[in-house]
Amino acid sequence: MKFGLQIGYWGAQPPVGQRELVTAAEECGFDAVFTAEAWGSDAYTPLAWLGSGTERIRLGTSVLQLSARTPTACAMAALTLDHLSGGRHIVGLGVSGPQVVEGWYGQPFAKPLARTREYIDIMRQVWAREAPVASPGPHYPLPYTGPGSTGLGKNLKPIVHPLRPDIPIFLGAEGPKNIALTAEIADGWLPLFFTPRMADMYNEWLDEGFARPGARRSRDDFEVCATAQIYLTDDPASVLAGLKPVTALYMGGMGSEDTNFHAEVYRRMGYGDLVDEVTALFRSGRKDEAAAAIPDEVISESTLIGDADSVREQIKVWEAAGVTTLLVAAGSVQQIKDIAALA
């Protein structure tokens, strides 16, 4: 089992002390560090800044939003960072949701699976640099010849020769079709709210993708980097209580009442009635009641909580479920050292 450090995205102000955390993660043997983006800070700028002080640790995004960049722009950023880091970049991508895509980026959300497939194909054409990049569309036609076109567009190769012709791509996927697509066309999966209890279901979806003609990977060389916070404590009850408000937000307050992909994850875990209850409470402004309605086991099955010996045993369960990397957050250098000592 490997560990990755999840830096996430900024809140109202830039966070302090992240350079120290990333340095400690590298010194303690963490495999990777990941940044994220929502509708504030972007993922690439902090990753380049933080990565400039490292030598070994892999630099990933978890995740870049497809609609934030055209596929060629994303490929340019990736090949640039891959050069600057000596070949340590991981491109983590996700489609986000309609509220962000249409409300923040001003783009249509339709056909996310087809857009993802087309997007990745274009990125890999850029890195391969075997021929001018071309795509018939319909989502990212190259060259563009639609309404308003001058007719002067031409297919181009990147000026810069990529350091690696095949930079690894991980996908943040939650639904069965998206997870199967991930196994077919990507190099790794970035699950959120993973639980070993549902491993058979996840593996069925992954195996569907691995079995498709032309699949890039097999179970043996595919990475599963699961976000799974680790809390070393002798007081699990207080930790569980502190996590319930955040869980209520994801379960009942993300997206819209009718379209919340995170809520669907919990429904597939068997918590449909709870999702309905938490959503109704959260969206009526009763957020404290929404948090209180969540049972402890809902939190604990997606989180590793307990003393060091207990967490070590839990890590074995996650590893047996197919997870190759636990992607964790940390608030201090000492916390990173404590987590590293579990391996």
Rank of each mutant, 00 (worst) to 15 (best):
V275A: 04
M201I: 15
G253Q: 01
I57F: 06
L190S: 01
L59V: 10
G209N: 02
S302Y: 00
G60Y: 06
W189F: 03
A211P: 02
G285M: 13
F193L: 10
V224T: 11
H83R: 11
E289H: 09
L152M: 13
A43W: 02
F261E: 00
E301D: 12
G285R: 15
P245Y: 01
L21P: 05
I299G: 02
D42I: 12
T195Q: 05
E208S: 13
G92Q: 07
L281V: 09
A329Y: 01
G92R: 06
V100N: 02
A320P: 00
L21E: 11
S218W: 09
P14C: 11
E26N: 09
D276T: 14
A291F: 08
P143W: 07
G137S: 10
M76D: 08
A24L: 11
A183C: 08
Q65Y: 05
I120D: 05
A237D: 10
P138Q: 11
G255V: 00
H83S: 11
L206P: 01
I122Y: 08
Q335P: 00
L206K: 05
A186P: 01
F210L: 07
M251L: 08
R19V: 15
A329V: 02
Q13H: 11
D82I: 08
A24P: 05
E130F: 14
H83L: 13
D166T: 04
A329E: 09
A110V: 07
A330T: 06
R216L: 13
A180S: 12
A180K: 04
S52H: 15
I336N: 02
V278W: 00
Q335N: 10
P165V: 07
L66C: 01
T325Y: 02
P98G: 00
A173N: 05
L64G: 04
V100M: 01
F109E: 02
I230E: 01
